[in-house]
Design a protein around this nucleic acid. Structure first.
Lengths: 353, 353
DNA sequence: TTGAAAGCGCTAACAA
DNA sequence: TTGTTAGCGCTTTCAA
């Protein structure tokens, strides 16, 4: 009736041993009944389940992971959850993961390569089954290469390190920026500005984020194609809302101030609006504004903001799917998923044509 | 030179055994050198570290957790990360956790008790060292009681189940609502409205969120104390921005429309602003608005919004500290931390006095 | 269908 | 300082 031998040190909280004893079966049988694998008689199953219930048994998944080699956990290395864009990406990602029985460990990198490297190390040590990463730099990807070589399932989202052979889920930032600016040009604007992100790494070197860069390149190309100039003053560098406000305020105070300003992301657009208020300019009569990313507040500013909307939630959800498939089939060919952006015309662009 | 015996099944990826062999020491010595515990000669340490480097060794923390009984992981059970408030709470929480060497597993409950119960079960099975929870219901707390009895370290944030003996980190929602409304009354308003959240659970029963309830009670008490009436039409139930917009639009179309409307949270305030635009009313000339939570957009609406600011990040950071202390000292007395809110006066309230 | 036994990769107590 | 050994709680052959 008591097949197995009591482990020498009794565990705190009941283990499968206790359940087995309580049910009068072996540990193997109890494990089979509880884990839903192998074959167990109906009778045994009922007894084990009742015993587990009585004892308040909770399976120890770290022990399980030890044996199966799977943690049923995914990692997410993103810049900052408190950034609304990433918050939605993460929501999509956790939903996708959860649907397949996976949990997710969240790590914020603040766009810092060192933090990303450290976070990747931690996730690796925790043996997560797969990792989502929005790389902090498109240049520093060695740690990701190493992870990949070790067989780590990896998916890049929002941005990607060129040449890194992983699944990728992005939007076409270049195209979106390009088309948006084309529209504004078509509306008759010739002086269009777009402050650009300038992040300093700990070494003082510029840490360019590919997403922003691509949007900006789309802007530059659309301008060039229309024969329009982009003086340096129209593309000032800044980091964060306050700096954007500052450089934009200066830009809008110039004699040749732009007639339209493009916010390359949520926080940039906010900084631009701050500047417009600081300069006491009317939108869109005196200056037009358009931005990237359709957040909740774009319809409560007056006039409502015209923006490029990107499917943040879907980006995360799609990345989860890709990662899950990668875990299933490590050697299947990699895919790059380019999700569509949408131009949302509202009232913040004046028609000069 | 090769003290230990090769395990029968060679592991994929190198284990501490491989490192030990490569370094010519025993597993225990390798483990000590790598884990930074016990005593190891300088010579051995160097050899082990070199071997680990050469082999690309990564410690398996699930195995470590197995023996130490610690996962160095915390769980977070919150409504929704894509809600800016919770996103900031989570950021504070992960930062606090990370500082002490902990990672965090994120679970969204969508204010649903069932999901919360299930999430708690998962986190328990994963043997996280502590759990942060923003309870979905202040009535359904049995699962939390059970966790507590089992010795689970727990901290409640933003809301709490009355009588549940855990550390708690909140703001005084009642007081904040009360004082804000007092201010508006002092500005001469007598007809003040505040739509209230009505969430339906899967069973169709109302699932009241204590936070919103307390704010609303503060509003009611401030009104009552000033001898002001709160007709039912001034406190319509709604769920989500769109519904708030709808009920508020109707409210503002009445002959006895309120002169001020209180947004009980971010999404409510957004819905109220939507309604104000829909009714084509001027703020604050025709209607005043004030809200709870100072999000990024409150300064880009015109007029800028007067709000009660709450320290979302600090709520999370403080909860992390409390949880970490609880893990250290499971039996120390519980504390309730009430973080201060701040009234931020901007321009959205008309002075009628 | 069931039980015995091995072992996942690590830490920790003990001995040398 | 170092090595031996015994597990942590589970899954998984292999026999019975």
């Amino acid at each position: 009736m008591l097949p197995d031998v009591q482990p020498s040190v009794p565990a705190q909280g009941s283990s499968i041993f206790d359940v087995a004893r309580e049910a009068g079966v072996s540990r193997a049988t109890a494990a089979r009944a509880l884990g839903g694998y192998g074959s167990v008689s109906e009778e045994a199953r009922r007894r084990v389940e009742a015993a587990a219930e009585r004892l308040g048994y909770s399976v120890n998944s770290v022990a399980r992971s030890m044996v199966t080699g799977q943690t049923m956990t995914l990692g997410a290395l993103i810049a900052d959850v408190s950034n609304p864009f990433f918050a939605r990406v993460i929501r999509g990602f956790t939903d996708g993961a959860r649907g397949a029985g996976y949990d997710v460990v969240l790590v914020n990198t603040d766009e810092t390569v060192d933090t990303e490297v450290h976070g990747l190390k931690l996730l690796t040590e925790k043996r997560v089954d797969g990792i989502l990463v929005a790389p902090a730099s498109e240049e520093a990807g060695e740690h990701l290469v190493t992870a990949l070589e070790r067989g780590q399932a990896l998916v890049q989202v929002d941005r990607f390190v060129p040449g890194l052979d992983t699944d990728v889920v992005v939007v076409d930032n270049y195209e979106a920026g390009y088309r948006a600016v084309q529209r504004v040009i078509a509306a008759g604007h010739t002086r269009i500005a777009a402050p650009i992100l300038r992040t300093k790494g700990p070494d003082g070197r510029a840490n360019l984020i590919s997403t922003m860069l691509e949007r900006h390149q789309g802007y530059r190309d659309a301008m060039a194609e229309a024969g329009l100039a982009v003086p340096g003053a129209y593309a000032p560098g800044a980091h964060g809302r306050a700096e954007v406000r500052a450089v934009t305020t200066e830009m809008l105070s110039r004699a040749d101030r732009p007639t339209a300003v493009f916010g390359l992301d949520d926080s940039f657009t906010l900084g631009i609006i701050d500047a417009v208020y600081a300069c006491d300019l009317e939108v869109p009569q005196q200056v037009s504004i358009f931005g990237f990313d359709d957040t909740e507040w774009t319809t409560v500013v007056r006039p409502p903001l015209s923006v490029i909307a990107q499917p943040a939630y879907d980006l995360g959800a799609c990345a989860a799917q890709a990662l899950l498939r990668r875990i299933q089939a490590p050697d299947a060919p990699r895919h790059t998923h380019v999700l569509p952006t949408t131009w949302v015309e509202r009232g913040s662009i004046r028609n000069l044509a």
